[in-house]
């Protein structure tokens, strides 16, 4: 039987197909990561000249005088560190300095362009805050109803219906807000400005509701059944169990939902572009028009000159949006979702 040994050829065979496939799959998978890196690099790259534009168009003598001499500037406070002075580049030339960026005026197209981001930040925060104020209670309660109180049949109906809202293009929601909601609420409350932070936030809430709803509902319905049953067995009613057992157990998920909803609202463009009125006012009145960071990019990028300071500032705003949403996602992903999982695994 020793001859039979030779029938086998178990020796490693050359299979280029599998190796190539493996290589291609790995390489292509890297694209997602590469894109994140490239977004970082290329959005920042176009924003960078703001901080170094002195080299580009200003003579070295001018730079020196600006660095060492006390900058007269157009603002009154002159307690600037050397570093800030370096960044500060004469407003008359149309470039943005740090002080200009931190000012309270956004007037990019004027003799003395002002690139103050404060009103835009305030605008974004205001609109986002309103959106969450409306969306959070509605979607959390709706998720509670769907996950806990509704029959299985009703749940199968509610879930896809509300999730369809996520499929509405934001331009459609913006349109609906601009044409229908804006008139409806102005007639109802009789305020001055038809388009304002409230209308923008209300419209945004429509985009945020499906996000908060879906994640909360998922968190609620993944609370282990034993926990629910234990509570019911102790004589608690269904709503007591929902409120005092299920909802607390799912809080990390609810927080994740709120954070992701915040990120979505903060970065959303078309809805706010269409529904907020787009005036760069720094006010805390919810019934006045606002201009958000994202809407500013959307409205102005098409009209700027490539390489211009205004162009760079818009990219800077984009970088800020990217960093902020990136950080929010990271927090939601690593901290809160991880905690939710751990909590349930611990309970197992």
């Amino acid at each position: 039987m020793t001859t039979e040994k030779n029938i086998y050829s178990l020796d490693r065979k050359f299979r280029p197909g599998d190796g190539i496939a493996r290589f291609v799959v790995h390489s292509v998978s890297f694209i997602s990561f590469a894109v994140i890196l490239l977004i970082f690099i290329f959005v920042f790259r176009e924003a960078l000249p703001i901080f170094s534009s002195t080299e580009k168009s200003v003579s070295s003598e001018y730079l020196q005088s600006e660095t060492y001499g006390d900058e007269p500037g157009d603002e009154s406070d002159s307690e600037l560190s050397d570093e800030t002075v370096l960044l500060e580049t004469g407003g008359a030339e149309g470039r943005a300095g740090l002080r200009n960026l931190l000012s309270r005026e956004w007037q990019p197209v004027s003799g003395q362009p002002k690139y103050g981001l404060i009103p835009l930040f305030v605008g974004s925060l205001k609109v986002t805050f309103i959106a969450l104020l409306i969306a959070a209670p509605l979607s959390i309660l709706a998720a509670l109803y769907t996950a806990v109180f509704a029959s299985a049949k009703l749940r199968e109906l509610i879930k896809p219906t509300i999730e369809l809202l996520a499929g509405f293009p934001s331009v459609v929601i913006g349109f609906f807000a601009l044409i229908t909601l804006a008139s409806f609420f102005q007639n109802l409350f009789g305020y001055t400005y038809r388009l304002n932070a409230f209308i923008g936030g209300l419209a945004l809430s429509l985009a945020v509701i499906p996000i908060i709803f879906t994640i909360t509902e998922e968190a609620l319905s993944s609370v282990p059944r034993e926990m629910t049953e234990a509570s019911l067995a102790l004589g608690a009613t269904r709503w007591q169990t929902a409120l005092f057992v299920i909802l607390p157990a799912a809080t990390p998920g609810v927080f994740a939902a709120l954070i992701l909803g915040f990120g979505r609202a903060f970065g959303e463009t078309m809805i706010v572009l269409m529904a907020t009125g787009n005036a760069a006012l720094t006010s805390f009145n919810f019934l006045e028009p606002v201009r958000t960071l994202s809407a500013t990019i959307g409205a102005e990028m098409a009209e700027v000159v490539f390489g211009d300071t205004h162009y760079n500032v818009l990219f800077l705003i984009g970088s800020l949006l990217f960093i902020i949403t990136f950080a929010l996602n990271a927090v939601a992903e690593f901290y809160i979702r991880g905690r939710l999982l751990k909590r349930f695994r611990g309970e197992d």
């Binding site: 020793t2 039979e4 040994k5 086998y8 178990l10 490693r12 065979k13």
Partner: peptide
């Protein structure tokens, strides 16, 4: 298997 160690590194 048939005298050949199937966990040998050269085995396919």
């Amino acid at each position: 298997i048939n005298g050949r160690d199937i966990y040998e590194s050269s085995v396919d």
